[in-house]
Design a protein around this nucleic acid. Structure first.
Lengths: 231, 231
DNA sequence: ATAATAGTGTCTCTTAGACATTATGAA
DNA sequence: TTCATAATGTCTAAGAGACACTATTAT
Protein backbone atom coordinates (compact mmCIF):
# COMPACT_ATOMS: atom_id res chain seq x y z
CA UNK A 1 0.00 0.00 0.00
CA UNK A 2 2.87 2.35 0.53
CA UNK A 3 5.45 1.20 -1.94
CA UNK A 4 8.83 -0.15 -0.98
CA UNK A 5 11.01 0.99 1.88
CA UNK A 6 14.13 3.12 1.81
CA UNK A 7 17.07 3.69 4.06
CA UNK A 8 17.32 7.45 4.51
CA UNK A 9 20.58 9.24 5.01
CA UNK A 10 21.87 12.79 5.11
CA UNK A 11 24.93 13.86 3.14
CA UNK A 12 26.73 17.10 3.83
CA UNK A 13 28.30 19.50 1.36
CA UNK A 14 30.47 21.44 3.81
CA UNK A 15 32.15 24.39 2.13
CA UNK A 16 34.72 26.85 3.34
CA UNK A 17 37.17 29.32 1.84
CA UNK A 18 40.87 28.71 2.47
CA UNK A 19 43.18 31.26 1.02
CA UNK A 20 41.88 31.87 -2.46
CA UNK A 21 40.05 28.60 -2.92
CA UNK A 22 36.63 27.20 -2.23
CA UNK A 23 37.12 23.92 -0.37
CA UNK A 24 34.88 21.02 0.55
CA UNK A 25 35.14 18.61 3.46
CA UNK A 26 35.61 15.03 2.26
CA UNK A 27 36.02 11.74 4.12
CA UNK A 28 37.85 8.66 2.93
CA UNK A 29 35.53 5.68 3.08
CA UNK A 30 36.71 2.82 5.27
CA UNK A 31 33.96 0.38 4.27
CA UNK A 32 32.29 -1.08 1.23
CA UNK A 33 30.88 0.10 -1.08
CA UNK A 34 33.44 2.50 -2.55
CA UNK A 35 35.97 1.57 0.14
CA UNK A 36 39.00 3.82 -0.19
CA UNK A 37 37.16 6.43 -2.25
CA UNK A 38 36.56 9.97 -1.11
CA UNK A 39 32.98 10.95 -0.43
CA UNK A 40 30.81 13.47 1.33
CA UNK A 41 30.38 13.06 5.08
CA UNK A 42 26.99 11.77 6.08
CA UNK A 43 24.99 9.27 8.06
CA UNK A 44 21.62 7.70 8.47
CA UNK A 45 18.64 9.38 10.09
CA UNK A 46 18.06 8.13 13.63
CA UNK A 47 14.59 7.04 14.78
CA UNK A 48 13.55 10.28 16.47
CA UNK A 49 15.41 12.72 14.26
CA UNK A 50 14.16 15.15 11.69
CA UNK A 51 16.45 15.71 8.71
CA UNK A 52 17.91 18.96 10.02
CA UNK A 53 18.72 17.23 13.32
CA UNK A 54 20.69 14.55 11.53
CA UNK A 55 22.51 17.16 9.47
CA UNK A 56 23.44 19.19 12.55
CA UNK A 57 24.58 16.09 14.41
CA UNK A 58 26.75 14.93 11.55
CA UNK A 59 28.21 18.39 11.11
CA UNK A 60 29.16 18.57 14.79
CA UNK A 61 30.67 15.12 14.59
CA UNK A 62 32.80 16.14 11.63
CA UNK A 63 34.12 19.50 12.70
CA UNK A 64 34.03 18.89 16.44
CA UNK A 65 31.26 20.11 18.66
CA UNK A 66 33.58 22.64 20.22
CA UNK A 67 34.16 24.29 16.89
CA UNK A 68 30.49 23.87 15.94
CA UNK A 69 29.39 25.73 19.03
CA UNK A 70 31.29 28.91 18.37
CA UNK A 71 30.93 28.98 14.62
CA UNK A 72 28.74 31.52 12.83
CA UNK A 73 28.03 29.28 9.88
CA UNK A 74 24.98 28.29 7.88
CA UNK A 75 23.17 25.01 7.25
CA UNK A 76 20.34 24.55 4.75
CA UNK A 77 18.70 21.69 2.94
CA UNK A 78 19.85 21.23 -0.63
CA UNK A 79 17.83 18.44 -2.27
CA UNK A 80 16.86 14.78 -2.12
CA UNK A 81 18.63 12.13 -4.21
CA UNK A 82 17.05 8.75 -4.77
CA UNK A 83 18.02 7.26 -8.12
CA UNK A 84 17.23 3.53 -7.93
CA UNK A 85 20.84 2.49 -8.52
CA UNK A 86 22.64 5.16 -6.55
CA UNK A 87 23.65 2.73 -3.79
CA UNK A 88 24.56 -0.89 -4.61
CA UNK A 89 23.28 -2.03 -1.22
CA UNK A 90 19.69 -1.23 -2.14
CA UNK A 91 17.37 1.73 -2.11
CA UNK A 92 18.89 4.58 -0.18
CA UNK A 93 17.49 8.07 -0.32
CA UNK A 94 19.88 10.82 0.64
CA UNK A 95 18.86 14.32 1.59
CA UNK A 96 21.81 16.60 1.02
CA UNK A 97 22.48 19.64 3.17
CA UNK A 98 24.72 22.57 2.38
CA UNK A 99 26.91 23.98 5.16
CA UNK A 100 28.93 27.19 4.82
CA UNK A 101 31.63 27.58 7.45
CA UNK A 102 34.56 29.83 8.22
CA UNK A 103 38.01 28.41 7.69
CA UNK A 104 38.63 25.80 10.40
CA UNK A 105 41.59 23.59 11.16
CA UNK A 106 41.66 20.19 9.50
CA UNK A 107 39.44 17.84 11.47
CA UNK A 108 41.25 15.23 13.52
CA UNK A 109 38.71 12.49 14.01
CA UNK A 110 39.69 9.17 15.52
CA UNK A 111 39.42 6.47 12.89
CA UNK A 112 38.20 8.78 10.16
CA UNK A 113 40.39 10.26 7.45
CA UNK A 114 38.91 13.57 6.44
CA UNK A 115 40.07 16.92 5.23
CA UNK A 116 39.51 20.00 3.11
CA UNK A 117 39.91 19.70 -0.64
CA UNK A 118 39.78 22.49 -3.23
CA UNK A 119 36.50 22.06 -5.07
CA UNK A 120 38.21 22.57 -8.42
CA UNK A 121 40.38 19.50 -7.82
CA UNK A 122 37.65 17.10 -6.74
CA UNK A 123 36.62 14.27 -9.05
CA UNK A 124 35.23 10.76 -8.84
CA UNK A 125 33.59 10.76 -5.47
CA UNK A 126 31.66 7.77 -4.13
CA UNK A 127 27.99 7.19 -5.03
CA UNK A 128 26.46 10.25 -6.75
CA UNK A 129 28.42 12.59 -4.51
CA UNK A 130 30.13 14.32 -7.42
CA UNK A 131 26.72 15.44 -8.61
CA UNK A 132 25.60 16.43 -5.11
CA UNK A 133 28.76 18.47 -4.64
CA UNK A 134 28.18 20.16 -7.97
CA UNK A 135 24.63 21.05 -6.99
CA UNK A 136 25.82 22.37 -3.64
CA UNK A 137 28.50 24.55 -5.17
CA UNK A 138 26.04 25.96 -7.67
CA UNK A 139 23.59 26.66 -4.85
CA UNK A 140 26.30 28.48 -2.91
CA UNK A 141 27.20 30.55 -5.96
CA UNK A 142 23.60 31.59 -6.52
CA UNK A 143 23.04 32.28 -2.84
CA UNK A 144 25.89 34.76 -2.71
CA UNK A 145 24.25 36.75 -5.47
CA UNK A 146 21.14 37.77 -3.61
CA UNK A 147 21.77 37.14 0.07
CA UNK A 148 24.29 38.24 2.68
CA UNK A 149 25.33 34.66 3.40
CA UNK A 150 28.90 35.20 2.23
CA UNK A 151 29.50 36.30 5.81
CA UNK A 152 28.83 32.71 6.91
CA UNK A 153 32.22 31.88 5.40
CA UNK A 154 33.88 34.45 7.66
CA UNK A 155 34.85 34.35 11.32
CA UNK A 156 32.77 36.42 13.75
CA UNK A 157 34.86 39.51 13.01
CA UNK A 158 36.19 40.10 9.54
CA UNK A 159 37.31 42.81 7.15
CA UNK A 160 35.73 43.88 3.89
CA UNK A 161 38.68 42.34 2.10
CA UNK A 162 38.01 39.01 3.84
CA UNK A 163 34.45 39.17 2.59
CA UNK A 164 35.50 40.06 -0.92
CA UNK A 165 37.90 37.13 -1.04
CA UNK A 166 34.95 34.87 -0.22
CA UNK A 167 33.07 36.11 -3.27
CA UNK A 168 36.17 35.82 -5.43
CA UNK A 169 36.88 32.26 -4.30
CA UNK A 170 33.29 31.03 -4.66
CA UNK A 171 32.71 32.70 -8.01
CA UNK A 172 36.29 32.36 -9.28
CA UNK A 173 36.28 35.95 -10.45
CA UNK A 174 37.99 39.19 -9.54
CA UNK A 175 35.95 41.96 -8.01
CA UNK A 176 36.89 45.63 -7.89
CA UNK A 177 37.64 46.31 -4.21
CA UNK A 178 36.28 49.86 -4.31
CA UNK A 179 32.94 49.05 -5.91
CA UNK A 180 32.61 46.00 -3.68
CA UNK A 181 33.22 48.05 -0.58
CA UNK A 182 30.61 50.59 -1.64
CA UNK A 183 28.07 47.85 -2.32
CA UNK A 184 28.39 46.00 0.98
CA UNK A 185 28.73 49.04 3.18
CA UNK A 186 25.71 50.74 1.60
CA UNK A 187 23.49 47.70 2.15
CA UNK A 188 21.76 48.45 5.46
CA UNK A 189 22.26 45.77 8.08
CA UNK A 190 24.84 43.75 6.16
CA UNK A 191 27.90 44.82 8.14
CA UNK A 192 28.10 46.19 11.67
CA UNK A 193 31.28 48.18 12.18
CA UNK A 194 33.36 47.52 15.24
CA UNK A 195 35.98 50.06 16.17
CA UNK A 196 38.68 47.45 16.12
CA UNK A 197 41.20 47.11 13.33
CA UNK A 198 43.54 44.40 12.17
CA UNK A 199 47.19 45.12 12.77
CA UNK A 200 50.46 43.53 11.88
CA UNK A 201 50.53 43.43 8.11
CA UNK A 202 51.65 46.13 5.73
CA UNK A 203 49.27 48.83 4.62
CA UNK A 204 46.57 50.75 6.34
CA UNK A 205 44.84 48.70 9.04
CA UNK A 206 41.44 47.43 7.96
CA UNK A 207 38.35 47.89 10.08
CA UNK A 208 36.70 44.78 11.52
CA UNK A 209 32.98 44.15 11.03
CA UNK A 210 30.43 41.73 12.36
CA UNK A 211 27.43 40.24 10.53
CA UNK A 212 24.35 42.42 10.66
CA UNK A 213 20.71 41.32 10.61
CA UNK A 214 20.19 41.78 6.86
CA UNK A 215 19.66 38.59 4.90
CA UNK A 216 19.01 39.74 1.34
CA UNK A 217 20.86 41.97 -1.09
CA UNK A 218 18.72 44.48 -2.98
CA UNK A 219 19.55 44.59 -5.78
CA UNK A 220 21.57 41.45 -6.21
CA UNK A 221 25.31 41.34 -6.76
CA UNK A 222 25.83 39.72 -10.14
CA UNK A 223 28.50 37.19 -10.96
CA UNK A 224 28.52 38.15 -14.59
CA UNK A 225 27.72 41.52 -16.11
CA UNK A 226 24.09 41.88 -17.01
CA UNK A 227 23.24 40.82 -20.54
CA UNK A 228 22.90 43.95 -22.59
CA UNK A 229 19.39 44.52 -23.83
CA UNK A 230 18.88 44.14 -27.55
CA UNK A 231 18.72 47.24 -29.69
CA UNK B 1 23.89 -0.37 10.28
CA UNK B 2 21.74 1.85 8.16
CA UNK B 3 19.16 3.15 10.60
CA UNK B 4 15.48 2.50 10.32
CA UNK B 5 13.48 2.33 7.14
CA UNK B 6 11.13 4.90 5.64
CA UNK B 7 8.29 4.85 3.21
CA UNK B 8 9.10 7.50 0.60
CA UNK B 9 6.47 9.51 -1.19
CA UNK B 10 6.27 12.51 -3.47
CA UNK B 11 3.85 15.36 -2.82
CA UNK B 12 3.02 17.94 -5.45
CA UNK B 13 2.46 21.65 -5.04
CA UNK B 14 0.73 22.31 -8.36
CA UNK B 15 0.14 26.01 -8.90
CA UNK B 16 -1.71 27.89 -11.59
CA UNK B 17 -3.19 31.35 -12.07
CA UNK B 18 -6.93 31.60 -12.60
CA UNK B 19 -8.27 35.06 -13.17
CA UNK B 20 -6.51 37.17 -10.60
CA UNK B 21 -5.67 34.44 -8.12
CA UNK B 22 -2.88 31.98 -7.51
CA UNK B 23 -4.50 28.56 -7.13
CA UNK B 24 -3.30 25.18 -5.92
CA UNK B 25 -4.52 21.73 -6.88
CA UNK B 26 -5.88 19.85 -3.86
CA UNK B 27 -7.40 16.41 -3.46
CA UNK B 28 -9.93 15.32 -0.88
CA UNK B 29 -8.63 12.30 0.98
CA UNK B 30 -10.79 9.20 0.80
CA UNK B 31 -8.77 7.12 3.30
CA UNK B 32 -7.31 7.33 6.74
CA UNK B 33 -5.42 9.17 8.04
CA UNK B 34 -6.99 12.60 7.57
CA UNK B 35 -9.94 11.04 5.72
CA UNK B 36 -12.14 13.81 4.35
CA UNK B 37 -9.45 16.46 4.66
CA UNK B 38 -7.94 18.29 1.72
CA UNK B 39 -4.32 17.60 0.96
CA UNK B 40 -1.69 17.85 -1.72
CA UNK B 41 -1.76 15.21 -4.46
CA UNK B 42 1.00 12.66 -4.16
CA UNK B 43 1.99 9.03 -4.07
CA UNK B 44 4.71 6.60 -3.15
CA UNK B 45 7.87 6.06 -5.15
CA UNK B 46 7.70 2.88 -7.20
CA UNK B 47 10.58 0.36 -7.14
CA UNK B 48 12.34 1.51 -10.28
CA UNK B 49 11.51 5.18 -10.15
CA UNK B 50 13.63 8.18 -9.40
CA UNK B 51 11.92 11.02 -7.54
CA UNK B 52 11.36 13.13 -10.64
CA UNK B 53 9.76 10.12 -12.37
CA UNK B 54 7.29 9.72 -9.55
CA UNK B 55 6.51 13.42 -9.60
CA UNK B 56 5.92 13.42 -13.36
CA UNK B 57 3.76 10.31 -13.16
CA UNK B 58 1.62 11.75 -10.38
CA UNK B 59 1.27 15.03 -12.20
CA UNK B 60 0.07 13.31 -15.35
CA UNK B 61 -2.35 11.25 -13.33
CA UNK B 62 -3.79 14.37 -11.76
CA UNK B 63 -4.16 16.67 -14.73
CA UNK B 64 -4.63 13.99 -17.37
CA UNK B 65 -1.86 12.79 -19.59
CA UNK B 66 -3.46 14.47 -22.57
CA UNK B 67 -3.19 17.84 -20.92
CA UNK B 68 0.23 17.00 -19.53
CA UNK B 69 1.57 16.26 -22.98
CA UNK B 70 0.79 19.60 -24.52
CA UNK B 71 1.47 21.76 -21.52
CA UNK B 72 4.46 24.10 -21.34
CA UNK B 73 4.76 23.95 -17.60
CA UNK B 74 7.56 23.49 -15.12
CA UNK B 75 8.39 20.85 -12.51
CA UNK B 76 11.17 21.16 -9.93
CA UNK B 77 12.08 19.59 -6.64
CA UNK B 78 11.18 21.66 -3.61
CA UNK B 79 12.45 19.93 -0.44
CA UNK B 80 12.31 16.80 1.66
CA UNK B 81 10.06 16.56 4.72
CA UNK B 82 10.63 13.87 7.32
CA UNK B 83 9.58 15.00 10.78
CA UNK B 84 9.24 11.84 12.92
CA UNK B 85 5.55 12.45 13.65
CA UNK B 86 4.42 13.83 10.32
CA UNK B 87 2.48 10.66 9.42
CA UNK B 88 0.64 8.68 12.11
CA UNK B 89 1.22 5.44 10.17
CA UNK B 90 4.96 5.55 10.78
CA UNK B 91 8.03 7.08 9.27
CA UNK B 92 7.22 8.54 5.91
CA UNK B 93 9.58 10.85 4.10
CA UNK B 94 8.01 13.06 1.48
CA UNK B 95 9.91 14.85 -1.24
CA UNK B 96 7.81 17.78 -2.40
CA UNK B 97 7.86 19.01 -6.00
CA UNK B 98 6.66 22.33 -7.30
CA UNK B 99 4.74 22.40 -10.58
CA UNK B 100 3.77 25.59 -12.39
CA UNK B 101 1.06 25.14 -15.01
CA UNK B 102 -1.15 27.24 -17.24
CA UNK B 103 -4.80 27.48 -16.33
CA UNK B 104 -6.39 24.09 -17.04
CA UNK B 105 -9.92 22.82 -16.64
CA UNK B 106 -10.83 21.24 -13.31
CA UNK B 107 -9.57 17.67 -13.29
CA UNK B 108 -12.24 15.02 -13.60
CA UNK B 109 -10.68 11.92 -12.14
CA UNK B 110 -12.76 8.82 -11.50
CA UNK B 111 -13.02 8.23 -7.78
CA UNK B 112 -10.94 11.25 -6.80
CA UNK B 113 -12.33 14.59 -5.70
CA UNK B 114 -9.86 17.25 -6.69
CA UNK B 115 -9.86 20.84 -7.83
CA UNK B 116 -8.24 24.25 -7.86
CA UNK B 117 -8.35 26.34 -4.70
CA UNK B 118 -7.17 29.93 -4.26
CA UNK B 119 -4.00 29.74 -2.20
CA UNK B 120 -5.16 32.58 0.01
CA UNK B 121 -8.19 30.55 1.14
CA UNK B 122 -6.39 27.29 1.94
CA UNK B 123 -5.99 26.23 5.56
CA UNK B 124 -5.73 23.05 7.62
CA UNK B 125 -4.47 20.60 5.04
CA UNK B 126 -3.64 16.99 5.92
CA UNK B 127 -0.24 16.02 7.37
CA UNK B 128 2.27 18.89 7.08
CA UNK B 129 0.88 19.91 3.72
CA UNK B 130 0.05 23.43 4.88
CA UNK B 131 3.73 23.98 5.51
CA UNK B 132 4.74 22.35 2.23
CA UNK B 133 2.28 24.53 0.34
CA UNK B 134 3.63 27.60 2.08
CA UNK B 135 7.18 26.66 1.13
CA UNK B 136 6.11 26.04 -2.45
CA UNK B 137 4.36 29.37 -2.77
CA UNK B 138 7.35 31.18 -1.35
CA UNK B 139 9.62 29.34 -3.78
CA UNK B 140 7.37 30.36 -6.67
CA UNK B 141 7.41 33.99 -5.52
CA UNK B 142 11.20 34.04 -5.33
CA UNK B 143 11.58 32.24 -8.63
CA UNK B 144 9.56 34.87 -10.47
CA UNK B 145 11.97 37.52 -9.24
CA UNK B 146 15.06 36.29 -11.02
CA UNK B 147 13.92 33.84 -13.69
CA UNK B 148 11.61 33.87 -16.68
CA UNK B 149 9.51 31.03 -15.27
CA UNK B 150 6.39 33.16 -15.01
CA UNK B 151 5.79 32.06 -18.60
CA UNK B 152 5.29 28.50 -17.31
CA UNK B 153 1.95 29.75 -15.95
CA UNK B 154 0.91 30.85 -19.43
CA UNK B 155 -0.39 28.91 -22.42
CA UNK B 156 1.97 28.43 -25.38
CA UNK B 157 0.97 31.81 -26.81
CA UNK B 158 0.20 34.69 -24.49
CA UNK B 159 0.15 38.47 -24.29
CA UNK B 160 2.27 40.71 -22.12
CA UNK B 161 -0.82 41.47 -20.09
CA UNK B 162 -1.32 37.74 -19.46
CA UNK B 163 2.23 37.56 -18.20
CA UNK B 164 1.82 40.61 -15.99
CA UNK B 165 -1.32 39.16 -14.42
CA UNK B 166 0.75 36.11 -13.45
CA UNK B 167 3.18 38.29 -11.53
CA UNK B 168 0.36 40.24 -9.94
CA UNK B 169 -1.46 37.10 -8.84
CA UNK B 170 1.62 35.32 -7.47
CA UNK B 171 2.97 38.40 -5.69
CA UNK B 172 -0.41 39.94 -4.83
CA UNK B 173 0.77 43.32 -6.00
CA UNK B 174 -0.01 45.73 -8.80
CA UNK B 175 2.62 46.33 -11.45
CA UNK B 176 2.79 49.30 -13.79
CA UNK B 177 1.92 47.87 -17.23
CA UNK B 178 4.24 50.22 -19.10
CA UNK B 179 7.34 49.57 -17.02
CA UNK B 180 6.56 45.85 -16.96
CA UNK B 181 6.29 45.75 -20.73
CA UNK B 182 9.60 47.54 -21.10
CA UNK B 183 11.29 45.14 -18.69
CA UNK B 184 10.15 41.91 -20.28
CA UNK B 185 10.51 43.02 -23.88
CA UNK B 186 14.02 44.33 -23.28
CA UNK B 187 15.21 41.07 -21.73
CA UNK B 188 16.77 39.19 -24.66
CA UNK B 189 15.25 35.77 -25.24
CA UNK B 190 12.39 36.12 -22.78
CA UNK B 191 9.60 36.67 -25.30
CA UNK B 192 9.48 35.68 -28.95
CA UNK B 193 6.99 37.80 -30.85
CA UNK B 194 4.53 36.12 -33.15
CA UNK B 195 2.72 38.27 -35.66
CA UNK B 196 -0.62 37.13 -34.37
CA UNK B 197 -2.84 39.26 -32.18
CA UNK B 198 -5.76 38.56 -29.91
CA UNK B 199 -9.06 39.84 -31.18
CA UNK B 200 -12.58 40.09 -29.86
CA UNK B 201 -12.31 42.23 -26.76
CA UNK B 202 -12.37 45.99 -26.49
CA UNK B 203 -9.24 48.00 -26.94
CA UNK B 204 -6.27 47.69 -29.20
CA UNK B 205 -5.44 44.04 -30.00
CA UNK B 206 -2.48 42.73 -28.08
CA UNK B 207 0.38 40.91 -29.72
CA UNK B 208 0.90 37.23 -28.90
CA UNK B 209 4.29 35.96 -27.75
CA UNK B 210 5.89 32.59 -27.13
CA UNK B 211 8.47 31.68 -24.49
CA UNK B 212 12.02 32.33 -25.54
CA UNK B 213 15.18 30.48 -24.51
CA UNK B 214 16.17 32.88 -21.71
CA UNK B 215 15.92 31.47 -18.20
CA UNK B 216 17.21 34.24 -15.96
CA UNK B 217 16.32 37.90 -15.49
CA UNK B 218 19.27 40.28 -15.21
CA UNK B 219 18.78 42.23 -13.12
CA UNK B 220 15.97 40.71 -11.12
CA UNK B 221 12.45 42.05 -11.02
CA UNK B 222 11.80 42.95 -7.41
CA UNK B 223 8.59 42.31 -5.51
CA UNK B 224 9.25 45.16 -3.16
CA UNK B 225 11.11 48.37 -3.86
CA UNK B 226 14.79 48.13 -3.02
CA UNK B 227 15.65 49.16 0.52
CA UNK B 228 17.07 52.63 0.39
CA UNK B 229 20.70 52.77 1.34
CA UNK B 230 21.51 54.57 4.56
CA UNK B 231 22.75 58.15 4.38
C1' DA C 1 61.18 57.05 1.42
C1' DT C 2 58.83 53.09 -0.53
C1' DA C 3 55.64 49.51 -0.86
C1' DA C 4 51.30 47.78 0.31
C1' DT C 5 46.78 47.87 1.57
C1' DA C 6 42.40 50.54 3.18
C1' DG C 7 39.16 53.79 2.31
C1' DT C 8 36.82 57.68 -0.35
C1' DG C 9 35.53 60.19 -4.48
C1' DT C 10 34.12 61.01 -9.44
C1' DC C 11 32.23 60.19 -13.89
C1' DT C 12 29.23 57.70 -17.12
C1' DC C 13 25.84 54.59 -18.54
C1' DT C 14 22.01 51.56 -17.59
C1' DT C 15 17.80 50.77 -15.48
C1' DA C 16 13.78 51.29 -12.30
C1' DG C 17 9.97 54.01 -11.14
C1' DA C 18 6.58 57.47 -12.15
C1' DC C 19 3.68 59.19 -15.48
C1' DA C 20 1.92 61.18 -20.54
C1' DT C 21 0.72 60.30 -24.97
C1' DT C 22 -0.60 57.91 -29.10
C1' DA C 23 -2.66 53.69 -31.53
C1' DT C 24 -6.34 50.57 -32.49
C1' DG C 25 -10.07 48.08 -31.77
C1' DA C 26 -15.42 47.24 -29.83
C1' DA C 27 -19.93 49.07 -28.55
C1' DT D 1 -18.19 59.26 -30.46
C1' DT D 2 -16.88 57.00 -26.41
C1' DC D 3 -14.57 53.60 -23.99
C1' DA D 4 -11.09 50.32 -23.24
C1' DT D 5 -6.80 48.42 -23.79
C1' DA D 6 -2.06 48.20 -26.15
C1' DA D 7 2.13 50.23 -27.18
C1' DT D 8 5.56 53.79 -27.00
C1' DG D 9 7.90 57.85 -25.00
C1' DT D 10 9.86 61.08 -21.31
C1' DC D 11 11.87 62.47 -17.08
C1' DT D 12 14.39 61.62 -12.75
C1' DA D 13 16.99 59.22 -9.46
C1' DA D 14 19.55 55.12 -7.98
C1' DG D 15 23.04 51.98 -8.77
C1' DA D 16 26.91 49.45 -11.42
C1' DG D 17 31.22 49.66 -13.57
C1' DA D 18 35.50 51.96 -14.43
C1' DC D 19 39.06 54.35 -12.46
C1' DA D 20 41.84 58.34 -9.53
C1' DC D 21 43.12 59.75 -5.34
C1' DT D 22 44.04 60.00 -0.28
C1' DA D 23 45.13 57.60 4.28
C1' DT D 24 47.79 54.69 7.22
C1' DT D 25 50.63 51.23 8.31
C1' DA D 26 55.28 47.95 7.84
C1' DT D 27 59.92 47.72 6.13
Amino acid sequence: MRGNLFAVGVDLVVLTVRGDELCVLLVRRSEQPFEGSWGLPGGFVAPDEDLADTAARELSAQIGSGAAGRVTGHLEQLAGYAAPDRDPRGRVLSVAFLALLPDLPDPDQPGVTSGWHPVADVADLAFDHTRILSDGVERARETLEYTTLAAAFCPPEFTITDLRRVYEAVWRTEIDPRNFSRKVTSTPGFLIPTNRHVTGGPGRPAQLFRRGPATRLHPAMLREPAVRAAG
